[in-house]
Amino acid sequence: MLGGAPMLNLSADPGSFPFASKYLLLPPNTKMMLGSDLSAIPPRIASATNGWFSPLTQQQDGKPISISPLPLNICHAEIWFENGQAWIQDLESAFGTFVNDKKIQKETVLKTGDVITLGIAIQRNVNTPVDITDDHLKPIIAKVSILKSS
């Protein structure tokens, strides 16, 4: 921990859109947005230390394509520490935010071992464009670890 501020670690759980682990330093009274960095204005650059989830680049028909999780909104949820606890809140996202498979409707406390899900898995059907991969259809599913300052 830097400067004694709490840190929240998010690591991809099975079934998640692939992402590198996040190490989010959360000073008191500071909210951090969780969302997609694709199409955001102003542009966002995802990193291991912020809440933006970056598209993957994959090859399709010999051409690189960007793959973002379709269930993830640009501004999906926010997290913060308050009174020694980690909190998460959905920001009226299209596909919802879940803690341990339960859709949250209000500010919700997080603890180590919880699993947060940003969005839901979208089912492929006959109307799904062929250039949409299975990874496009996956939500962000992350196991939570919290390191608190002493």
Results as ranks from 00 to 15, higher is better:
Ile116Gln: 02
Ile41Arg: 13
Asn83Ser: 11
Ile141His: 07
Asp135Gln: 15
Thr49Tyr: 10
Ser145Trp: 02
Leu110Asp: 06
Gly4Val: 03
Gly4Asp: 10
Gly119Lys: 15
Ala86Tyr: 05
Gly35Asp: 02
Ala20Phe: 01
Pro43Leu: 04
Glu82Gln: 13
Pro18Ile: 06
Thr30Phe: 01
Asp90Asn: 10
Gly3Met: 04
Ala86Thr: 00
Leu34Asp: 02
Gln89Glu: 10
Ser54Arg: 12
Ala94Phe: 13
Ala94Glu: 15
Leu10Met: 00
Glu82Lys: 12
Pro69Glu: 03
Leu110Met: 05
Ile65Met: 05
Pro139Val: 09
Leu118Arg: 11
Thr97Met: 02
Gln123Met: 13
Glu107Lys: 15
Ala94Gly: 13
Lys31Tyr: 04
Ile132Val: 15
Phe19Glu: 01
Ile132Phe: 12
Lys106Leu: 01
Asn100Lys: 09
Trp80Val: 08
Ala142Thr: 04
Leu91Ile: 13
Ser21Ile: 02
Leu91Asp: 13
Ser39Gly: 00
Val126Lys: 13
Asn83Phe: 11
Leu10Lys: 08
Ala77Asp: 04
Ile45Met: 03
Glu92Gln: 13
Leu8Ile: 13
Ala20Pro: 00
Asn9Ile: 14
Gln85Leu: 07
Leu91Glu: 14
Asn50Ser: 03
Glu78Tyr: 02
Met33Gly: 07
Phe53Ser: 00
Asp90Val: 03
Ala40Val: 15
Ala48Gln: 06
Ser54Thr: 11
Ser145Cys: 05
Gln105Glu: 13
Lys63Val: 10
Ile79Pro: 01
Asn125His: 10
Thr133Pro: 01
Ala20Gly: 06
Asn73Leu: 01
